[in-house]
């Protein structure tokens, strides 16, 4: 098992970093979505994460499961589109699996991320290489699992997950979309970065940042 644990303040920092990253990249995400979707991914993610930070800031839950239930429900009820149910389900499952604790060890973090990922698959029914957020999330979760199993610290494991998410994000460029609005473009969706995979890479960038050092 890996060294170190993840504290509640670090998980809050993860959310806060993710909120800041999508806000910083609002225009970029929307531009990616304009090319192959409907030009709203940046705006929607910012609306959702802003609402999350307001809720969490007003009454910070004292256990991991309560925190992520609040995050998940807020995403579901403020984002809309496909991203709302997908990110919402991710956070809800993450919290349920983590449980009523205030600290996660590496194995529990890995299990919670895996459960979140499986929730995304169950809700969206996408597979690897469909040119969706799954293409960044699947390798990230695998990398974190492998790192934790290999005895890495949680910060090294999160860094490995971020690298894998970035690689997965870049790998969406040549793909032809098979799920989501981009799939309507057929072959014309190839040659573009997937906006969902891009925001998911930001989710793991934020996690790596919050757990670093």
């Amino acid at each position: 098992m890996g060294d170190g644990t993840v504290s509640l303040p670090q998980l809050l920092d993860w959310l806060s970093r993710f909120s800041a990253l999508v806000t910083e990249n609002r225009t970029y995400l929307t531009e990616l979505d304009s090319a192959i979707g409907d030009a709203d991914h940046g705006v929607n993610m910012v609306r959702g994460m802003t609402a999350v930070m307001e809720k969490v800031g007003a009454a910070p839950p004292e256990a991991v499961d309560a925190l992520f239930k609040m995050v998940g429900m807020t995403m579901v009820s403020t984002v809309g589109g496909a991203s709302g149910p997908l990110y919402g389900t991710f956070f809800l499952r993450f919290g349920t699996t983590a449980g009523a604790v205030t600290e996660l060890d590496g194995a529990t973090l890995a299990a919670a991320l895996r459960a979140g990922f499986e929730g995304v698959i169950a809700r969206g029914k996408a597979e690897l290489n469909d040119k969706t957020m799954v293409d960044a999330m699947s390798p990230a979760v695998d990398a974190l699992d492998a790192a934790v199993a290999g005895g890495a610290s949680v910060s090294d494991a999160a860094a490995a997950a971020f690298s894998a998410a970035e690689a997965g994000r870049e790998a969406t460029i040549p793909l032809v979309a098979r799920k989501g609005r981009a799939s309507y473009l057929g072959e014309r969706s190839a040659g573009h970065l997937d906006p969902g995979a891009t925001s998911t890479a930001m989710l793991f960038e934020s996690l790596a940042g919050a757990l670093a050092g």
Binding site: A39, R47, G80
Partner: peptide
Amino acid sequence: AGEVFTSPTPD
């Protein structure tokens, strides 16, 4: 009614 071109939410 959802936001422009964005599905409304379950609630």
